[in-house]
Every structure is written in C-alpha cells, then in structure tokens.
Design a binder for these strands. Structure first.
Length: 310
DNA sequence: CCATGTTTACGGCTCA
DNA sequence: TGAGCCGTAAACATGG
C-alpha cells in the first residue's frame, strides 16, 4: 500500500518503452511532431517516475530517436524559432505494438539505405509543401498554433509524395495504444482496477481518451501540465468521462508479449470500426517489406522501406 | 557552455 | 540457447 506522501504507484516506472512514450508524445501533439524538449516535457508532466534521473533517461531517449528509423527528424521552418528539429513518426513504420506490449516490440522498423536517404529529403519537402498552406498562422512551435486550426486529424509525412493516402501512422496512438482487450485481466484484477492503482492509464484507456476527444477537440491543444491523479490520464483528461463504463477492459499492465492472432484480428476490426478511414495495420505497411538482415548498417542499403521480422 | 543528435558498446531480458 | 529488442553509458559532433 502506498502511503500518502510516500512513493505512490504513479512513481513507479510506467510500462512503456521509450519508443512507446515518445510515440505517445508525438501523437498527442496537434501537428504530430514535437521538438525534443517537448517530448521530455510530455513524459515528465505525465509520468512522475521520469522527473528524476533526467540525465539518464533523456540520454536513452535521444539514443532511441536517433537509432530507430521509426522516428524522423523534421527541420524547423524559419518562422519556427527554437532549438533542434521536430521529431515525427515515420508514416510507414507499421504497427510496432501489434501484440499489445509497449515494453518490447515484436519487430522493429528499419529502413533500407536508399529509403533512408530518400526520407531525409522528400519527407521534409513534403512537410514544407504541406504545412505551408495549412498552417499559415504557424509562428512558433506547432503546439502554439495548435489551438486554432482544425487541421485534418492525421497528417502524415509521406515519403512517397502523399501516395500513401488513407494510411495512418500505424503508430497513431490508437494503434499504439488502441486496442480492445475484451475480458482481459491484469494479475487477476480487472485492468481498470490495476490502472487505478498505478495512477496512470494503461494503453487502451489512452486509446479511449484519444478516440473520444479527437473527433472534436485537437488532442492536447496545450502541452500544459495536468495534475496527475488516478482520475486523470496522462493526457490530463478525466478518466471517468473517457473510460468506457462497462465492457471496457484492459490489457495486463506489463502486457505479456504474446502474439495473439485472435486478438490482433479483433483489434484490427475494432480499429476499423472506430475510424474507417484509418485502415492501418502492420500488413499494410509491410506489403512491400522484404526481410533484411538486422545489421546495424542495414539501414543503408536498399530501395524499399521494410520491416524486419524477428 | 549547454542542448541536441549520432554512434558504438555492452549487459539484461524475452521469445522462437 | 541464440537472435533480437531494450536500457544505459559514453564518446563525440554541432549549433545557438
């Protein structure tokens, strides 16, 4: 039992990898991209655990940003002063958390050489092209302008000139976190109960929050810190209003990494039902994918984006 | 100088 | 048990 004043459960390490956390942060922003400092902020605001040892985990996080191809860097426009680039999710990175684990991906997203180079150029080009019209007011970081514009909910930084229409970031929070784990329990407890004890929401809670608010309000229009309490999710949204009352159950909190085909199917369907335009699945993104040796330098060799299967 | 990136290395852990 | 993912440390570069 956590005592008041003492360490509470919410001070414990959240069951998310840095990749998950970063993806959440990015997805939570209106523009689907954030500067490093805002990624830090997102995490620290919502997960007390990360308010300490900042040197350590921030170094790890930067390592993840650079090392993993699922994250792409988008340079600032001249009218977006500030330090460092924006970070976004690679549009083709696939559903890296399809098994429902946010601690460890079943497979990782790795680009091939030429793809890597290509994305470095055309991605940002596309960005410039795209956002210049849509967000003219954009002075300052995207989250500043976020409050006003009702931009299309899903902007992707397409590397193939917008050809991947309809394709959502598989990393979109509802994909990352968005699953219906019907009837699932965590350690013998209903997930909601576990969530409550943890003091931060588990994946599908976030999903519910996202899904319930995205249609109306831009997610996290402000990056303002919100009070952390069992009643609030990491996005500062009251859980009560967002948590589906009954039938909603959650994955075990540190979700066992088990590829469960049936579940995957279910989640695919539910994702579809929930947002028809977002047909996103790992299979979509890995259509062109060919396996590639997982060497570190493998990122620099071929023509197509690919998903390396483990 | 400090924040931001990039890269290498290594040990722990999990899954096939 | 090996392969691969993850977390961490650390060296190094760069730009404001």
């Amino acid at each position: 039992m956590p005592r008041p004043g003492k360490n509470s459960y919410s001070d414990q390490k959240p069951p998310y990898s840095y990749i998950s956390l970063t993806a959440m942060a990015i997805q939570s922003s209106q523009e689907k991209m954030l500067p490093l400092s805002d990624i830090y902020k997102f995490i620290m605001d919502r997960f007390p655990y990360y308010r300490e040892n900042t040197q350590r985990w921030q170094n790890s996080l930067r390592h993840n940003l650079s090392f993993n191809d699922c994250f792409i860097k988008i340079p600032r426009r001249p009218d977006q002063p500030g330090k460092g680039s924006f970070w976004a999710l690679h549009p083709d990175c696939g559903d890296m958390f399809e098994n429902g684990s946010f601690l460890r991906r079943r497979k990782r997203f790795k680009l091939l050489r030429a793809e890597h180079l290509a994305s470095k150029n055309s991605q940002m080009l596309h960005y410039f092209h795209h956002h210049h019209h849509q967000n003219k007011l954009g002075i300052g970081p995207p989250e500043a302008a976020a409050g006003v514009g009702r931009l299309p909910q899903f902007q992707t930084y397409s590397i193939n000139g917008g050809q991947s229409t309809g394709f959502k970031h598989p990393f979109a929070i509802e994909n990352i976190i968005g699953r219906d784990y019907k009837g699932m329990m965590a350690g013998g407890l209903p997930i909601s109960s576990v969530m409550h004890h943890l003091g931060y929401p588990v994946p599908s809670q976030i999903s519910n929050m996202v899904n319930s608010m995205w249609p109306h309000v831009g997610m996290l229009e402000s990056m303002a810190p919100m009070p952390i309490s069992p009643d609030y999710g990491p996005f500062g949204v009251p859980m009560k209003t967002l948590c589906h009352p009954a039938s909603q159950t959650m994955p075990a909190v540190p979700v066992p990494i088990k590829p469960t085909p049936s579940l995957a199917a279910v989640s695919a369907i539910s994702n579809l039902a929930r947002s028809p335009t977002q047909l996103c699945s790992s299979s979509t993104s890995s259509l062109l994918g060919q396996t590639l040796s997982d060497s570190t330098e493998g990122k620099n060799n071929f023509l197509h984006p690919t998903v390396v299967h483990s």
